[in-house]
Design a protein around this nucleic acid. Sequence first.
DNA 1: GATCTAACTAGTCAGTGTCAACATGTGGGT
DNA 2: ACCCACATGTTGACACTGACTAGTTAGATC
Lengths: 209, 209
Amino acid sequence: MTPPTSSTDRYHHGDLPNALREAAVDVISENGLGHFSLREVARRAGVSHTAPAHHFGDVRGLLTSLATEGFDTLYSVTNTAVAAETEPAERLSAMGEAYVSLATEYPAHCQVMFRPDVIDNDDECLAESGMRAYGLLHDVVRDLVEAEGLDADVDAAAELCWATMQGLVVLEPKLALIDAREGRPSLTTRDRVRRLTTLMLDGIRHSAP
Amino acid sequence: MTPPTSSTDRYHHGDLPNALREAAVDVISENGLGHFSLREVARRAGVSHTAPAHHFGDVRGLLTSLATEGFDTLYSVTNTAVAAETEPAERLSAMGEAYVSLATEYPAHCQVMFRPDVIDNDDECLAESGMRAYGLLHDVVRDLVEAEGLDADVDAAAELCWATMQGLVVLEPKLALIDAREGRPSLTTRDRVRRLTTLMLDGIRHSAP
DNA sequence: GATCTAACTAGTCAGTGTCAACATGTGGGT
DNA sequence: ACCCACATGTTGACACTGACTAGTTAGATC
């Protein structure tokens, strides 16, 4: 049994994998993925520097687990965003906003999800979580195309949505910097998402087959 | 004077900064940015492990220099791509293809360019090179909007182009993996670029003000 | 030709990831 | 109730890393 003691002063932690993931998120958020340290993670979780190995193998295993968690929450937030709307186009817009919100709320996860050099791309759990998240996007785009009787290629349209939002996430700092250098007030991320979503939708709606 | 001796066995290298950048590119290409090592770079350039510091300060300085070089070549390749076309829409398409080609030909540079955690974002040279590259895109989009008498917002349209192509670059490995898992043959990167460019152009052309 | 300085080296330090060897409890079978 | 296998943790060691200080070399300037 695990009594409600603080679970940090015990020899067996109780839920070390989660504690390590949380600590890893903190480290990445503070130092950036470029200055990630497994020992620092262990330190913050209050365990020895080799404890993580028993759960994740090596640092790549821990980051892969983080990436999987990222795709899972991506599926989760986009799914609830989609459920809140009925109109297909509105669903797609809501999905885009949810995607970008995720990137600002969980930056550490999102830094890891698309970094094939630091995660295990052959990991089965990772692939499944990723596929499920993408599958949802694909479904929503398909619904839109069918509902409005469009000629757009569903695969291409889904790719466009994903690529654009992902690009926005990566480029956001640079775009803000450009606005600053050109002397104009910087748009909020939300406004950028809306602008791009509108343009994207126009493209999908008017695409020839 | 620097006679045509092999310049590697001399005490003074001759052009160490460039040699270090090239070695850094090799290391990143082979190991990924996540397993970058300044000492390894110095080793490949045939100098001691502290030599890079005299030219770049620290590892961040070297990577910042690499990012700047990346934006410079981005400007260069997009500029020649644009010059080869006359039609504004064709220019924009050519630019997109050049952008993605750059990412496949110079992956190391492109990995660094949008990683604010490992470069010095306040570096003036970096900012200037980035602005010049973006300025070219902005000009091409403006020409398109003016030439075709469109209502599209130039800033938004340029952002869409950049974000989509950048997203495609980042997502490419995942997209190929998805195709593989769904059993269909994977598209070439070039084909993906064409598909997305077509969709984007449709969006820009049919956008309301 | 003396000297000044940029370019480079050598040695050191704390910190890192991973491995091997050892310690600790938890749970299952008898 | 006991015992033991094994998951979970620890300590120590190793080669490696980035950065610092101090010293060396050679090209440029006067």
